[in-house]
Simulated scan of single mutants.
Amino acid sequence: MSRKKQLPKWLALLLVLLLGLLLIITILKPSDQNSRSGVKLNSYVEKPVLPISPLPEVVPEVVVEPLELPLLQRVESGLALVIDDVGYDMPALRRILNLSIPVAIAVIPDAPYAEASATLAHEHGQMVMLHLPMEPSSEKYRKKMTPYFLHEKMDRQLLRETFLKGLAQVPYVEGVNNHMGSYLTEKSESMRWVMQLCREKELFFIDSKTSPKSVAADMAQALDVSWASRQIFLDHDLAPEAMQAAWQKAEACLAKGYRCVVIGHPHKETVAFLEAQFSSTGLDSLIPVAQLLRGGDAAVQAQLTAEERL
């Protein structure tokens, strides 16, 4: 048998040394992946850890209940101001509202700024009224009647529709008073229909008393509608001394312990008079017109019959 040839010892030792050297080089050399990416193992810098912001506190939703204003207590004596013919002059209305006195704003339904005026008055916490056009006695003014006027020739249904059309033009309405109406307010049947609708819509009525023969207050009382009547026109005459005399008459009415409803208009002279009157003295006894109403406080405003509701 032949003997296998063995490597010389020195050669074997050399091979072991070479293998060891290669192993050391392999360990010390960066990996190919790190070399390709250009990342140096000994140059890694740890990024600081940013603090985590706390979650915002959950605040439970607050449900705001609508504000319920107390009913105004009626009084046996007081002085209240109503401004008629509103809806044409917004700057004049703003000046009146800036007086910060209780004042009812009566808006004509077909005025160009009817809705805007009613909204502005409501935003200032003032009472809004529909200044409802009614047939006058004067032929001159009859020729100027618009489709919003109530007149004697209307049957019950047409009068109702016209009233409701006017009401739809003025938001936030709480009461009604007549614009003109020196003829219609004398007619019992027409005014009865008006009061039936006021009762249905829970509106009070203030008789502007453009006719001494007006039956508006009588019909309101008969149908248990809250009502009041005008005692004084502030600006029938626009002269400052005339308005001062009218106001003194209102103060005398109050001094006697009466209910005194004063009606004015947004004329520039009237606005200037009111600004002078209330910037200098003021009047603590000036109250909302709703406190001077009569009637309408029956046990239940009786349910309207089918006939009354049409």
Rank of each mutant, 00 (worst) to 15 (best):
E251K: 09
C260S: 04
A246G: 06
P288V: 11
E241R: 11
Q221I: 07
K201I: 07
L286C: 03
W247F: 12
S279H: 13
W227Y: 14
A298V: 09
A299V: 14
L292N: 08
L283V: 02
L203T: 02
E241F: 08
E241W: 08
K213I: 02
A245C: 07
A217P: 07
C198L: 00
A217Q: 03
K213Y: 15
K268N: 11
E202D: 10
H265Q: 03
A216S: 12
D297N: 10
A239K: 06
W227Q: 03
C260W: 07
L223T: 09
D224C: 14
L238E: 05
L293K: 10
A299E: 13
P212A: 13
I263M: 04
H267F: 15
V262Q: 10
S285I: 02
P288L: 12
D235V: 01
G295D: 13
L283Q: 08
K249S: 09
Q291I: 07
V262A: 05
L292K: 02
H267K: 12
T210D: 03
K201G: 06
D284F: 12
D207G: 12
P266A: 04
F233A: 00
H267T: 05
A216M: 08
C253M: 01
R199Q: 13
R294K: 13
A245V: 09
E200A: 07
D218A: 10
L234W: 04
Q231I: 02
W193L: 01
E202N: 14
A298Y: 15
A298R: 12
F205R: 00
I206F: 12
L234N: 03
L203R: 03
F278R: 00
